[in-house]
Simulated assay, not measured.
Amino acid sequence: MIKKRILRVKDASRTRKIDSLAAEEPLEIRLDGTPLTVTMRTPGDDFDLAAGFLVSEGAVGSAGDISTIRYCAGATVEGQNTYNVLDVRLAPGVPAPEPRNFYTTSSCGVCGKASLEAVRTVARWDAADDPVELAQTTVAGLPDRLRAAQRVFDRTGGLHAAGLFTAGGEPLCVREDVGRHNAVDKLLGWALREGRLPLRGTVLMVSGRASFELVQKAVMGGVPVLAAVSAPSSLAVELAEEQGLTLIGFLRGSSMNVYAGERRLSPTGVTLGAGNGSAGVRTPG
């Protein structure tokens, strides 16, 4: 977090105070020494972010596909490592992804995303065959559980969050970032490094809207259910329908809109398929 002295204005009152800002810095991800992408992110869980990005791009599917991840010692300012450049080394025999121009920001995600057909061809797991069923009351409680785990948001009010939950509503992992897509990549990277892919029987809960890219990332991680507190895009709904993903939007209190995969939502039924089990909530330190 960054501390900043500000002017606070309320009605006729003006006061000076110290405010906490969410940090945003660039991270360059290199693959076997070659620059791959630059993303604007909240520093922290950078190894998970890099690994999750490679999961969402279809480059890796297990922890064994990655040999090492390290900060580049040459990325320094006044002799100090900036910790803003990572190099990922793939394991022998793992092919590098096709070269593309990757540039991501904290708001829009990867620009120039491939077509829906490309997403279908690189997905390693089929979300459509996941039989998990969730109780409606369990889904309704996820926003509060996600919010309760947002430690940095409590102090800054400036971060998105993504949480991975069992079908019973138990938190597995929560990550925060200035970018929605970065928060999800950090979750996927955590799951990869913990040997949890595919994430069958789980729910991905995000604090903002459900974009095409977030649906794609859920599909690439084998997540069967994506829930968001805000609206999905038309392309997100289309992809969810094609991939057999359950997509829930406008999840607020006891109300929600189910845009795809309504078969998994039970109004009163017992929650089935608790996924990979609860490991206790993980949040950024």
Score class of each variant (00 low, 15 high):
75 A>Y: 12
123 A>C: 08
137 T>G: 15
113 K>V: 11
86 L>V: 12
70 R>P: 00
77 V>W: 11
73 A>V: 10
118 A>T: 13
83 Y>G: 00
137 T>R: 13
75 A>F: 10
76 T>E: 09
68 T>E: 12
112 G>A: 02
113 K>C: 03
119 V>K: 00
131 P>A: 09
77 V>H: 11
110 V>S: 03
63 A>G: 12
126 D>R: 14
117 E>L: 08
116 L>I: 12
89 R>D: 13
71 Y>I: 02
61 G>R: 13
96 A>I: 01
112 G>H: 06
93 G>V: 10
133 E>N: 01
132 V>Y: 04
60 V>Q: 03
80 Q>W: 10
98 E>H: 05
79 G>E: 04
92 P>M: 07
123 A>G: 03
73 A>Y: 10
118 A>Y: 08
118 A>F: 08
79 G>M: 03
135 A>K: 04
87 D>E: 07
98 E>F: 04
97 P>W: 08
65 D>V: 01
125 W>S: 13
85 V>Q: 11
62 S>G: 12
82 T>I: 05
79 G>F: 10
121 T>K: 10
115 S>A: 15
118 A>R: 09
84 N>M: 07
72 C>H: 03
86 L>A: 06
72 C>F: 03
133 E>H: 05
92 P>K: 04
106 S>C: 04
114 A>L: 12
62 S>P: 00
109 G>L: 08
69 I>W: 00
94 V>S: 01
79 G>T: 01
129 D>H: 08
99 P>D: 09
100 R>K: 10
82 T>R: 14
71 Y>G: 02
133 E>T: 14
130 D>C: 12
114 A>P: 03
133 E>D: 00
104 T>N: 05
99 P>S: 06
118 A>P: 00
98 E>K: 11
89 R>H: 11
100 R>Q: 10
90 L>G: 04
79 G>Q: 07
